[in-house]
């Protein structure tokens, strides 16, 4: 059985080290927070200027001055801090942020990331903080379905969409397999309802499989 979005989020959460400083991207990656182990000590960073971000705000907690990068109202946890944008992005570029989790249109075998533009001529370009996160975080985890709606693989020999960052992705969490990208190429870490042979035949990329698979 391929994984649900919730199961993918749980897989990502399981690999985030205790005590890490982590940025969760807008959309699906935000749900990873729901699966962090209580007591993990993971500290969430939001690029609009906060460490120690808490869960979404509800009811009387909602404060227009306290939002996440998706502009949703959130809460603050004890030990939280606020800072301006130049400091927030220094935390990324300066190599202080341990992990970021983002979605993707495509990831290449060398860890290139494409997640900000499909290059469509009528699209309004918008990048936000994705390029800074991609090259800044010590580890970039991508969370996506392995195949696009039209069936084309999103883990590719070379990205055809405009790049967000080069050689930056270290792990790819998908609905049918988890991959690690490193010096040895793309390694299959785990599969879900699919064999490594099926993966190899449906992806046009060389794969190394972990010994335990």
């Amino acid at each position: 059985m391929s994984l649900s979005r919730e199961e993918m989020a749980a897989n990502v959460a399981r690999d985030i080290p205790d005590g890490a400083y982590v940025n969760l991207g807008i959309g699906q990656p935000t749900t990873v927070a729901d699966y962090l182990r209580p007591g993990s000590g993971v500290i969430l960073h939001t690029e609009n200027g906060m460490l120690g971000m808490g869960p979404p705000a509800t009811g009387h907690e909602i404060d227009p001055d306290l939002t996440n990068a998706g502009k949703q109202p959130v809460t603050e946890l004890p030990g939280a801090s606020y800072f301006h944008h130049a400091d927030s992005f220094a935390m990324m570029r300066g190599g202080h942020l341990d992990v970021c989790v983002m979605g993707a249109f495509q990831v290449s075998v060398t860890g290139d990331l494409a997640n900000w533009s499909t290059g469509a001529p009528d699209a309004i370009p918008a990048v936000g903080g994705a390029m800074d996160l991609a090259i800044g975080a010590k580890q970039v985890f991508v969370m996506m379905t392995l195949f696009a709606k039209d069936g084309r693989p999103k883990l590719v020999p070379e990205c055809t969409y405009p790049l967000t960052g080069r050689g930056c992705v270290s792990r790819v969490y998908t609905d049918v397999a988890t991959f690690a990208i490193g010096a040895e190429g793309v390694r299959v870490v785990e599969t879900f309802g699919i064999s490594v042979e099926e993966l190899i035949s449906s992806l046009c990329i060389p794969l190394v499989s972990s010994p335990e698979i």
């Binding site: 992005f89 990048v127 903080g129």
Partner: peptide, 30 residues
Amino acid sequence: VVPQGNLAERMRAAGAGIGAFFSPTGVGTP
């Protein structure tokens, strides 16, 4: 369109009297 961190840093540079700076953000992208 400017990556968010470059947007902040370009204004920081202006305010701090920096003539220009080399950023790793955006390398290899359009």
